[in-house]
Every structure is written in C-alpha cells, then in structure tokens.
Amino acid sequence: MKKLVLTGARGRLGSYLREPLSKLCDELVSTDILEAPTSLHDGERYVQADLADLPAMEALLEGADMVVHFGAIGDEAPFETLLGPNFIGAYNIWEAAYRNGVRRVVYASSIHAVGMHKKTDFIGIDAPHRPDTFYGLAKCFAEDLASMYWDKRGVEAVCMRILSAAQPTNPRAVGTWLSYDDLIHMVERAIDTPIVGFSVVYGVSNNDRAPVDNTKARHLGYHPKDNAEAYAKEIYAEYGPLDPQDAANMCHGGPFSTIPLGESGLAALNLNEDDVAKS
C-alpha cells in the first residue's frame, strides 16, 4: 500500500501498532488528539487532529488505501463525553473514507458491543448486539455504520471485537486474553485479506477457555498463537471461588456489565503497571 492511516496512535493499543503498520506501506500517517510522540518510525508521519472534526478527517484520509481506526475514549463515560470521539468520530471516519475512495476501514470494536450476553452461551460473530455500557453502545453504532457503508457505499470493513488486550491478571482474562502479538497478527490479516466485505472477528488469543466462536470469521485467516492457560492456575488460586450470580463473572462484559452507566469500568479490570502506562 502507498498510504495507511492509523487513528488513536497515542493510545494503549494504537502505540503497539505503529511500528508493524509502518512496514506495510510506503507512508503511515499516525494521528491522535494528543501531541506527537517523541520519535517516529521509518515512513511514519504524525498529524494531531480531532476525530470529531470531519474536514480534518477528510484531509487526513486523502489518498489513503485503508484506515485502521483505533481512536476513541477507551472506557465507559457519560454519553455526552463519548458523543464526539466515539459516535461522531466513527461517522466522520467512514464518511471521510467514502469521500476519498478509501477501500477499507479496520475498526477496533469491542466485546462490550455484546457484553450482556452470558459467557456460557459461547456466542459467535453473528450474536445480536447487547451492549453493556454507553461505550459498548458506541461500538454497536460503529459496527452498524460499517455494515451500512458496505451495503450502500461499498466501503469494506473489518470490525474486531477486542476482548482483553492486556496481560492476564484476573479470572475473566484466562478466557478473554488477547496478546499484543495476536493483536498485531489480527490487524495484519484484516488489512491483507483480499476481500472482506463487512466482517466481524473476535479479538481473542488461542485460549483453551475462550468464550466466543470465530468459526464464521475463518476467511480472514486469523490464527492466534498465545494461550492464557499458562496463567490459569496462579490466577484461580489467588481469586478463589467466584460468585456465579454476579453478572461481572457471568457476562462477557465483565465489570462493565455491572457498573452504573456513565461510570468508568477500567479501574475494576486490574490492569498491570505496564498496561496502564500505555493507556
């Protein structure tokens, strides 16, 4: 590819993608609402911009082959707080992609789009939306937007419903862990698969206890390698028996399933220091 755009490049997950994506194109344009990082990779250019600014997004995507859209507030917050970056920002990315003839949007969706489903249901990519928060609702909106722009305007999309992209530190993560290497692999497959139309894939590693089914996403060639089972014995010993009546243990959204709407859910996830530092 000649030009690839990465939004949310200063975020916890976007920061892991900058170097590998820079190797897939002649020019990687990284963007975020924050100031530029201290250093850039070969072939990388940085543009500070606001997702809620449609003209800025349209200019940013000019001449791009694809856009990898990770920009957003990555936590539950009041609807009014999420409206600009997470809802309007998603519309602006797809509209700017359409206006510029961008072929594909690779989108960082989330398990929270289906967070109120029970983990024991072993849901597939065709599970109906069941958001657990305003944050999850924004992911539902963007997935439906992606579907509509494919059906009506021919803009391809891969919506990656990321589960737990941080080191396993709690019982939920034994099933939901997505390693950073597998994250990069998933994004690469979302980019280099020749035809995707509108596709959904769960962002989860090759965990023995993964609670979701990616069978219908096999056309993407995503084959994760890491397995959180290596952490299971230690984590289960630390936490002891879990309450099966607690929705935080039973639902895909974990703590996001039980927090009041508009209140942060990240604090309950017990991220380690390295993961928090990347936030």
Rank of each mutant, 00 (worst) to 15 (best):
E35H: 03
Y231W: 11
A267E: 05
P211V: 14
D182S: 01
D32T: 00
E234I: 05
L21N: 05
H69E: 00
G89Y: 04
V212E: 08
Y180A: 05
V158C: 04
D132N: 10
E44G: 01
F198Y: 15
M186D: 08
D53Q: 11
R99V: 07
L271W: 07
N272V: 00
I259S: 03
M1L: 15
G240L: 08
G254L: 09
V114M: 02
Y98G: 04
S147T: 12
Y222S: 08
K119Q: 11
F70K: 01
G240N: 12
I195P: 00
Y46N: 01
P255R: 11
E188V: 10
I184M: 03
E19D: 14
D226K: 04
G124C: 02
F87K: 03
L61E: 12
V29S: 06
S147D: 07
S264G: 15
L21A: 00
D50P: 01
T169C: 02
V204M: 07
D126C: 07
L40A: 04
F134Q: 10
A190Y: 10
N92Y: 09
K23T: 10
F122M: 13
G136E: 01
K139R: 03
D65C: 13
D243T: 13
Q48Y: 09
N227C: 01
R103V: 06
E188A: 06
Q48T: 08
D151F: 07
R209H: 14
G175M: 06
E229L: 07
E35T: 12
E156W: 01
G74P: 02
R189N: 11
E234L: 04
A77M: 05
W177R: 01
Y149H: 07
S110W: 00
R209I: 11
G253R: 09
